[in-house]
Design a protein around this nucleic acid. Sequence first.
DNA 1: TCAACTGGATTGTCAGACATTCTTGACAAT
DNA 2: ATTGTCAAGAATGTCTGACAATCCAGTTGA
Lengths: 222, 222
Amino acid sequence: MIAKMDLRINRKTVPQEVVEKLRHAILSGIYMPGSRLVETDLCNSLGVSRPSLREALRSLQAERLIEIVPNRGPQVPLLSWRDAEEIYEVRELLEGEAAARCAVTIQEEDLKALGESLEAFRRAVVSSNSANELVTTTSDFFAIILRNCGNKIIEETLTGLKARVNFLRSRSMSLPGRANKSFIEMKAIYAAIKIGNAKQARKAAQEHVAKARDAAKSAFLR
Amino acid sequence: MIAKMDLRINRKTVPQEVVEKLRHAILSGIYMPGSRLVETDLCNSLGVSRPSLREALRSLQAERLIEIVPNRGPQVPLLSWRDAEEIYEVRELLEGEAAARCAVTIQEEDLKALGESLEAFRRAVVSSNSANELVTTTSDFFAIILRNCGNKIIEETLTGLKARVNFLRSRSMSLPGRANKSFIEMKAIYAAIKIGNAKQARKAAQEHVAKARDAAKSAFLR
DNA sequence: TCAACTGGATTGTCAGACATTCTTGACAAT
DNA sequence: ATTGTCAAGAATGTCTGACAATCCAGTTGA
């Protein structure tokens, strides 16, 4: 069977590539929160000019992945617990909504992909060798829900929070037992979506976020 | 009485100023949706260099105020009705939440400001000389609610939608009778916040957004 | 009529330069 | 010992100018 071919040619511009590389670097913790990013150094290690780099930095700034203080340059922002709490509050609203919508609109094919990503997460939980694996599979699971919620604004908003959410996930997933509980909650979301029960899907998603927040709180404040 | 002094020194950088000017220009309709923005022209009229301008364009792109197609440059995006609908859906969720939170947390001083901005809107409705006045006063009213909702993410998200929301407002406010209905709805939101009733505030805000969507729909599809 | 081509317009990208501002360490004053 | 002042060095803010890559429209030729 031939997979859907992606005909989009994406010739990436230099700033776009820089954004992706830096985003990945920040997310994987190469640059510690609070640390400053020196333009000249970045230019050298990335092999791009300062104007291109600075365009990329502006994009990352808009994504809240970095802060740019005038005359001090860019730095990776620190995440306070209150910041994290606010993120969970918004997630509870929007991911609940997304799951509910998804339950009614998702197509067979994407439902299958959702099931597979849940299975991938399960495998990551039982093998539990890599914290990173837990985060990416969780992230994939919710990304599929977002793609199928039928509202681009919700999708964009939560995608914009992904960086920080994954950062929080990497902390809470390391708590003993959290990954497994997380799996049970996600299974409930999947089940509700599968039977097309919007109300139940919203509730399950909101509960998951609430539990995730509690876990993150203990991981954060230790 | 001495007003609260703002001690923040805000020395603005060139790109920041460009962002503000272009944002204002786009919002006030100087650049029509779909029209292209030519970098050289913008540089000349703004009196800045291309690198500075391009940094500003990246910020505006992240705000979804412009689209940048590689090798074609920036342009003001067209807003489809589906796009608008999605915005109203998110507003219903987030502005409802914001109003509810605001009802419990707002301080005396800001409540007063909220009342004043409602009064300013009323005056704009009765004089009804300027559509622009209706939009800015409405926008101010909700901006105060957002500032006091206690969640920066919600505030940022809805602020990011402000451009397009105001565009839609300018259309629907021109419908006969809409401005007045809008005032009644906003008065209900204010009343609920004033008595600190979160549930009622959420409901009023959601109802307002729903009505605004209906109005926008008829204005949009005519 | 339609395909191919060509020239101008526009964007993508870089290098280099200089003014401005911040940081830091040293040194003087209280 | 703490505070204040100052200078050097580092980093950012911003511009100019240049050239390659790409797109678009009008022209040419079949």
